[in-house]
């Protein structure tokens, strides 16, 4: 009999000790950053505990009196347990909801992108309240887009679980593309540098002089007319009686140039990245 009774008594004491009875009365939900009043019933002193996602508080209270929880103790959204322990412990649960949107985290990729590239730019915005809680209710984020050639446009995104995103293609003109994400008083600007794409209509001319030939390209531009940046490598390749020879040279002031010694008739080609230019036949000594 003793063996049966002991576990029963322990269980009963356990149930009493953690009873979720009517000692504590908290609102079901509270907005983050607002103080909370929890009413209590009973009498005598007790130890009060507040267990939250990022804060824990413990203090002595008098049962029968209201317990005020300071605003900064409920700044993090989530589930909170309020517990009062005297001879036994009683608890209640309430939820702290995020406050109004006030902060943005805005990610824009990549930092450099070739012009006229479809869906090459992606933007993701995260919406938080002033306490860095993710705002779960749907909110509208405005994206103000300033293109390199001046015009500005705005597109809006509606968040889902605090996130909104979009993709867009780069525009034909190189330069600075700025996107400012905005919600409430929060503005987060980000900049992408649109750079020239691959060379287009690559063309060189040759100026033979005795056994040498000087080569120079026309201004090198992409198909939208954007000049390729100085420093971009252009390759000139010569094939003649002496064999094959290649010169890699950077673009300077929109053009690239090179010089070869010739050994008989030569075929010379030019390339820049994936773009092939024209091919010339040059006679040695001609």
């Amino acid at each position: 009999m003793h063996r049966i009774l002991t576990p029963c008594i322990v269980l009963a004491v356990g149930l009493l000790a953690f009873a979720q009875d009517d000692v504590l009365h908290a609102p079901k939900t509270v907005t983050a950053g607002n103080s909370v009043s929890i009413s209590t019933s009973g009498q005598g002193s007790a130890t009060f505990y507040l267990l939250g996602p990022s804060r824990v508080a413990k203090r002595s209270v008098q049962l029968g009196q209201d317990i005020t929880i300071a605003a900064n103790d409920v700044a993090s959204s989530g589930i909170y347990q309020a517990i009062a322990c005297s001879s036994s412990c009683s608890s209640t649960v309430f939820q702290v909801l995020p406050a109004a949107p006030a902060r943005l985290s805005f990610l824009l990729h990549p930092s450099r992108v070739p012009v006229s590239n479809g869906n090459a730019i992606n933007a993701t915005a995260f919406v938080f309240d002033r306490y860095r809680n993710t705002v779960l209710s749907s909110a509208k984020v405005d994206f103000h887009i300033t293109l390199p050639d001046g015009p500005t446009m705005t597109r809006a995104g509606q968040t889902s679980r605090g996130i909104t995103w979009f993709e867009m293609g780069s525009t034909p003109k190189q330069g600075r593309l700025q996107i400012v994400a905005s919600i409430a008083d929060a503005n987060e600007p980000r900049v992408i540098q649109q750079v020239a794409s691959d060379a287009c209509h690559l063309h060189m001319t040759a100026s033979p002089s005795g056994r040498t030939v000087k080569l120079e390209t026309d201004p090198i531009r992409d198909c939208a007319g954007n000049p390729l940046p100085d420093g971009t490598i252009v390759s000139f390749t010569k094939i003649d009686n002496a064999g094959r020879s290649t010169v890699d040279t950077p673009i300077k002031k929109d053009k690239a140039s090179a010089q070869f010694q010739l050994s008989g008739n030569a075929r010379i080609s030019v390339a820049c990245g994936v773009a092939l230019g024209n091919e010339l036949s040059v006679g040695g000594g001609q």
Partner: peptide
């Protein structure tokens, strides 16, 4: 799209016990 963030919804089966010293309070 850039692979830089992933959001998850987690339903966790947790038993949680909170102790003040040796005393279980929750």
């Amino acid at each position: 799209p850039d692979g830089g963030e992933m959001q998850l919804e987690d339903t966790a089966q947790l038993e949680m016990q909170v102790f003040d010293g040796q005393k279980m309070i929750y």
